[in-house]
């Protein structure tokens, strides 16, 4: 991320190719820096504050794949607009799949809406308003509140908005990590809980 240069966005959203170096966001005013255990906390905070600005998200120590780079999520009036991840260089719903494992250190910053215009003009980075809450935080009520806050033009009709979930499922390394951790945890807990017999009997 680099500071915005103040130039107005060029061309229509659909015509603008994603800049290779990711969103250019202004410094903004830091409102909050904290570790959140679930992503819904971040989204609800931004919605309740009616934040116009952005969140930078750094995965916690427990993460391996997400240990590098920041995720970025911008907001207008508390509603998510753009998602991007510096490690993967992906934007849009795919970037949401890169933000899914917590805990997260989150910094919320407010800024002038003009400073977000460049990023918001890149169609490939935009996310449907309710998707971060619905698909990443699994918080349908929060997603519904977010959709109600969103401008009319941003809400599709029956679009299932499953791009983030598909991106998660396409990341075979990530899935294998989840499964391997679960297997290791199951084995460790079998010992803790005295269930070795059941565990070993079937292998």
């Amino acid at each position: 991320m680099t500071d915005a240069d103040g130039d107005p966005p060029a061309g229509g959203a659909a015509e603008r190719p994603p800049p290779p170096d990711g969103p250019r966001l202004p410094r903004g005013d830091l409102l909050r820096s904290r570790v959140v255990p679930v992503p819904g906390d971040l989204l609800e905070d931004a919605l309740d504050r009616r934040l116009t600005g952005y969140a930078t998200v750094v995965a916690g120590d427990a993460l391996l794949l997400d240990g590098q780079g920041r995720g970025l999520l911008t907001f207008e009036d508390g509603v998510p607009v753009v998602a991007y991840h510096e490690r993967t260089g992906r934007g849009g719903e795919a970037a949401l799949a890169d933000l899914t494992r917590g805990p997260w250190r989150v910094e919320l910053s407010a800024c002038d809406p003009a400073g977000l215009a460049h990023a918001h003009a890149v169609e490939a980075w935009r996310v449907p308003p309710g998707v971060p809450a619905e698909r990443v935080a699994a918080a349908p009520d929060l997603a519904e509140r977010t959709r109600r806050r969103a401008p009319d033009g941003r809400i599709g009709d029956d679009d299932p908005d499953l791009g983030a979930v598909e991106a998660f499922l396409e990341d075979t390394d990530r899935i294998e990590q989840v499964r391997a951790e679960a297997r290791a945890e199951a084995e460790r807990r079998a010992r803790e809980w005295g269930l070795e017999k059941q565990f070993v009997d079937h292998h």
């Binding site: 699994a138 499953l162 945890e185």
Partner: peptide
Amino acid sequence: PTIPALSDGLKVGEYATAYG
């Protein structure tokens, strides 16, 4: 069809398999 539900569901599948 949410990422947390799929992630937790994968864990259930691994636990089940681990216990036969």
